[in-house]
Design a binder for these strands. Sequence first.
DNA 1: AAAATGATCCTT
DNA 2: AGGATCATTTTC
Length: 196
Amino acid sequence: MERLEEKFFQRPAKKVALELLGQYLVRKHSGVKLVVKIVEVEGYVGPKDKASHAYGGRRTKRNSVMYQRGGVFYVYKIYGLYHCLNIVTGLKDDPQAVLIRAVEPIEGVEQLLKNRNIGTEKNLTNGPGKLTQAMEIDLNFNSQSVENKELYLLKREKVKINQIVKVPRINIDYAEECKDLPLRFYLKGNKFISAK
DNA sequence: AAAATGATCCTT
DNA sequence: AGGATCATTTTC
């Protein structure tokens, strides 16, 4: 199966976000292979996006990865507890990214359950912090290329536009007029969409 | 140097 | 509806 290369991500975040739905994310870790399908994403679209870490061209130790070329992972720790997985999009010095919000388990469910220390698929990967815990994704992947051996994406059939729901993003109440922008996309009817 | 803040999750 | 929990960011 064909992998998504850096080139795929070197386009506007909104477009990349839409096309990421239905694609597979693969994690290889000490001989175990985990495969999931991306079912929910959010776009963060540059310096004028008040919801973005890079709003106003802000550049800090944490978000500096967003200014790299599209096709590298942006992983950060939130609330001191959880990790969020993003993929940088656009060209160098254009800070855009797509946040992976929810995925559907395809392969390696046993290991995913074990990593989350729970017994059922309910609440297994339906949120950004949950999926990173289930797949053992942490700061080690920050600024790594999508073209690496332990975490990468597989190209799958493009999802039809009428199966995609477009709504405002979540938990960005501070973003004022930007908070109503429809940049959260998910697969209609999928059981692994994050709460709310 | 100190205070505030989360692109969240879990329990009540 | 509120608490956990702490690295990062912002403020003084």
